[in-house]
Design a binder for these strands. Sequence first.
DNA 1: CTGAAAGCGCTTACAG
DNA 2: CTGAAAGCGCTTACAG
Lengths: 358, 358
Amino acid sequence: MTISLGKAFLIASSMEELLDTTGGKRGRITIHDVAAAAGISISTASKALNDTGRMGLETRERVKRIAAEIGYRPNALARGLLSKRSFTIGLLTNDTYGRFTLPVMAGISDALVDHGVSVFLCAIEEDPALAQIHVEAMLDKQVDGIIATGKRLDRRLPVDLSNLNVPVVYAFTEGAPGSVTFRSDDAQGARLAVEWLAKLGRKRMVHVTGPENFFSVRERADAYRRVAGEERPVLFGVWSESWGHEAVARLWSGSGERPDGIFCGNDQIARGVIDALRERGIRVPQDVSVVGFDNWEIVAAQTRPPLTTVDMELKELGRQAGLTVLALAEGRSVEPGIRKLPCRLVVRQSCGGDTLGI
Amino acid sequence: MTISLGKAFLIASSMEELLDTTGGKRGRITIHDVAAAAGISISTASKALNDTGRMGLETRERVKRIAAEIGYRPNALARGLLSKRSFTIGLLTNDTYGRFTLPVMAGISDALVDHGVSVFLCAIEEDPALAQIHVEAMLDKQVDGIIATGKRLDRRLPVDLSNLNVPVVYAFTEGAPGSVTFRSDDAQGARLAVEWLAKLGRKRMVHVTGPENFFSVRERADAYRRVAGEERPVLFGVWSESWGHEAVARLWSGSGERPDGIFCGNDQIARGVIDALRERGIRVPQDVSVVGFDNWEIVAAQTRPPLTTVDMELKELGRQAGLTVLALAEGRSVEPGIRKLPCRLVVRQSCGGDTLGI
DNA sequence: CTGAAAGCGCTTACAG
DNA sequence: CTGAAAGCGCTTACAG
């Protein structure tokens, strides 16, 4: 048996009779069907349904009721053609793994679903040609705006969005000059982490982090130094567990001072650090407190002990980016510039202090 | 300074002159602009651009050239209104974490971008009301089809998609009866894993896996037993690293037989198992081979040693789901039923054999 | 209070 | 070979 889902299957059985009486018309239910069923013109039907124009309340209600009964839903394409609003936006990302994009997407969707806006997700990796294709497809479909996001604050997407005829908002990726950009406040996030270590009485702090050529790495390191002391050590490396291991090996190999508080540049490094400490018989958090960055659940919740870490609040970032692109699409004014959104410290058990009720 | 991105900014400076000469019209470039610039009617312009109708090749080329010069792009909303095709599909998922959805999405997008199709991503969690809102928004926007996906093969999404007037394809989630469903062939995947262990000479196998109420857990366990032997032990538990630890503790605590090959139900369990073995001084893969399931890079590539595991080829699954929904949207016939797509064994170092060139 | 007409941007018979 | 007309489904002045 094969099924063919062409035009034919568009008609559900319950609709069939109605449509047959209204001319046997095939296809979706339109405003003509509503008007016919109510015995009025389509103009009046439109006004009744949209609460525009003047008309008796009872007529309005009756039309709405009939529309609901026959399952009428306005065609957004037709509406969009008139109103120049498609209630659709595009999310462009080069973060194929989705580590950062998913929370941002969730926030955007969360903020915009109430406004009837749907989101095209376009993953472009690092391919400029692919990016161009996706951007053009979105523009052809008359998106009301585009949000650009990525995996790195200090890198641009491989496509120029600065001269499009729709508003563009940047979230967690570097924006064009004069644009609206949302990003996490990494300095503030780092301060939260280091101040937490300090509050727990840690004095011999170390920062084990990623590659120095990341802007956010430098920003977090600077903030760390400002709180912990300018002379406190920073170990730059890569974003991996194994670097966390190696850093611990380095710190405990020489005859130097042993840290009692380690602020890690991300959760993966922190996991490596914690594992390495355990393997050396060093207790976390009794002997050393470890704090991470990212609050990547899959990593942070699985470390032993679970990781205290900094959450960049990417969902909130997405929410704000969504509302902003909507505002621009509606012609409202928005101040350009970079908005830094505060991070939040998520206290688990890797630093201690989790039972202090602080 | 504030910027207002209303209608006004739609006109780029370079377009301004042109549009002023064609009537000072504001807004996007339409086929009227092309026709005016070429000194022909819009009907002819349309036919020239779409390679329809009959006309001199040189006219056709000239129109196309002019269209390209003035940056004309057809309005997909207007086209969709006529053609009943929006070149848009919806992807509905309850997998908020994106573990399974992202690769599926990547495959869909990959397959459909060449056909000019864009994808609405709708994350609905487990909320039926939210799901309903998203489905209605997609239908209003005249999606050509919907792909439903999720995080579990044996669970339905919290919304009924069986009587929509657009085609629906299910991918990695349970479909309605009589629908087209794509899923991974978990039995075959499990066989790959266990046969690999057998090929490496492992005889005392154990299967450490997730909750027995998962269909895929039972299916993998059955396949394991068929290859390893019906009497071989299966330890059901949860999908976590800590369960992997606990399972090792259990296996090595009694006086029973010590396994030399452990097939894990997912990569997180495998990671727990490997960590626990290392902590006991048992060498992987020399003493015990460990194989996982999922090929979740972030986990599989970070275990020590890196994990040999089964990849469900979710991207390919997405690709096929995408092409299928497209076929249905075009009215082509598709055989309903469940299609199982083969898994692939990814050989890293946790089993040995990685240098055998097998 | 209600409806005919125009029009959003496009495509497609149809008549020249 | 080319263009006027109709129409996709809707909204919005405008005239009654």
